[in-house]
Structures are given as structure tokens and as C-alpha cells.
Amino acid sequence: MKKLLLSVLSLVFIAGVGNVGAESRDYISIVGSSTVYPFSTVVAENFGKTTKFKTPKIESTGSGGGHKLFGAGVGVQHPDITNSSRRIQKSEVETAMKNGINEIVEIKIGYDGIVIANSKKAKQFNLTRKDIFLALAANVPNPDGTPTVVPNPYKTWKDVNPELPAMAIEVLGPPPTSGTRDAFVELVMETGGKKFEFIKAMEKADGKQFKSICHTVREDGPYIEAGENDNLIVQKLDANPNALGIFGFSFLDQNADKLQGSVVEGVAPVFEAIADGSYPVSRPLFFYVKKAHVDQIPGIREYLKEFTSEKAWGDEGYLTDKGLIPMPAAERKKYSDIANNLTPLNASDL
């Protein structure tokens, strides 16, 4: 009995492992940003169901992690595509070059808005980026007007801006490892900080200090790192009407019955406002294709075709259902041409 079980197991094992050595892969391997993940997975699933190819495998590694894996080399053990919620960096392209990846195709897929939302049970906030900077930075300009920074003294929103409610500042947001946090710091905190002349002057004179003022989020309580799980933030906001949360637009879109996005600089985070660029806190999303893998790994061309088709990323495409903000038609045309021709990225453009 025991022996039988053992031999069956070993047979299964041998059968399963038998093809390890085979130097091939018949599915597309995609890594990268967790922000792009919800979109690329939908495309992958549709691609898998409507073509004869296998469904691509998509790992959510974060943009930075994705570029690292992507740039590690050419060959079946390396991914074919990496998703990114920011543009690839020069250094990342250089690393890739060093590892023999000479041609990378860059495809922009659309935009993602970062929203600052709270529960529908409370009043909608009307914020400026300056308000947000003052509320969340670790160090803020001295309230007495001198061009120095002091540890953030503000306890309530009213302290920050007399027009805001007298509610304690309580913001749930992503940790520093997240791409959403990077984008938030860049789009909101930096711009907010630059509203102060002396900080703005610093950007040129002392870039390091500028970054440290604008990029350091306070750690004395009002900003709560809520982990990478945006659903968790949604649940917490629903339970706590006094808190605000920072996350991607798609989560607001899916939970419109519970949450409302705060107005930023007079613009509410609605689909149209993000699409036409009037909502200030939005970022482009990309993916990058290793050209050397096209035609080596079956289906990459077809996957690109699916992704860049109107039924996917168009104004009415299924990606918009998932919360992707589409690009204007002209930009879509530009990138679908790049995808068709596999025009590689020019490193000097970065």
C-alpha cells in the first residue's frame, strides 16, 4: 500500500518534471506595476479566451521590481513585458542594454487618477495641493512666515486652511514601496510645496533638500500607512467617516456608492475630468516590450494588438470599465502604430 503510493507519487513527479529542460515557453510572461495589473490582466484574459494562445502570466511586482526583472536579460527565463505606472528610467534602460536588451518598445496605455476620497457619510472635501502638502508633510514652512521649516504642527484641517472643517487630520495612504505613493508625492506634495517661494527656489539650488521637504510624509500619526491593499482603505473609510484615503481611481469607481472623491484644485475626480487632464492628480501608465522576444514567444504581437485595440483601450473599451482613463484618440493612434511596427524606444528621449 505504502509502496504503491510512493511509486505513484514518484511517477507523477517524473512526469511533471520531465519537461524542465525544454528551453521554451509557450505563454507570455508579464511583470510589473500593481496599478497596471488590473488592466493588463483583463486584456490577457480576453486575449487568452479569444485566441489560440495561452493566457499570459502576469505578476504584480511593482514598477521598480518589474523593470529589474525585465532588464535582467534576454531568454525564456526573463519576462517579455513589464508594466509600469511611471516612465522607464534612463538607468533602467542602461541596465537593460548592458544585459543585452537593445530594443525596448514603449506603449502608453492611458491614465490613472489618484484620488483623495472619504466616506459618503461625511461632507465632500474641497482641497488644494497646498492644503494637502501642509496637512501631510513631515516638515512644513514656519506658520509665522519666516522661510524656514518646522515639524508639522497642524492637527486639524481647519489649522491648515480656515475654510476646511475642524476635523482631525486622518489620512490612510499607501506605503513608500507603492507606485501610488511615488506618484502622489510627486504630483501633490511637490506641487503643493512649490506654492511656497522659498521651497520653490530650493528645487534649483538644493535639489536634495527640496526632495526631503516635499517627499517626506509625516510619521506622527495623521498619515496612516494602510498597506498595499486599496480595498482595505476602502473598508476603513466606510467605517470611519472622519478619515480620508489615497488610492487609485479604479477603486473609487468601483465603490462610488460608499465613497466620494475630494475636489482637488476645484476639479472633482470624475472620469471625464481625468481623461481631459483637468483633474491634476493623474499619471500615465505604460508597458514595455522586449523586442527580442517577439516571434520567440508565441502571441506577443497578438497581445499588443488586443491591448491597443479600440475595444480594449478605446473610449468605450472594456478597460474603461475597469477604471482606466483612456488617452485622446490621436495619442492612441500614435501608440498603436508603435505597437504595430514595434518601434523601439529611443534612450535619448528619456
Binding site: A15, G16, V20, T41, G48, K57, I58, E59, S60
Partner: peptide, 15 residues
């Protein structure tokens, strides 16, 4: 090791 991934197809073997 890349097992946290979106995988639609049912795996049919160890590799």
C-alpha cells in the same frame, strides 16, 4: 519566485 501572478489556465504539471 513569481507565483503571485495572474494565471488563468489551470496548471497541468509541475512546470
Amino acid at each position: 519566485i513569481g507565483m503571485v501572478a495572474f494565471i488563468v489556465d489551470i496548471p497541468g504539471g509541475f512546470t
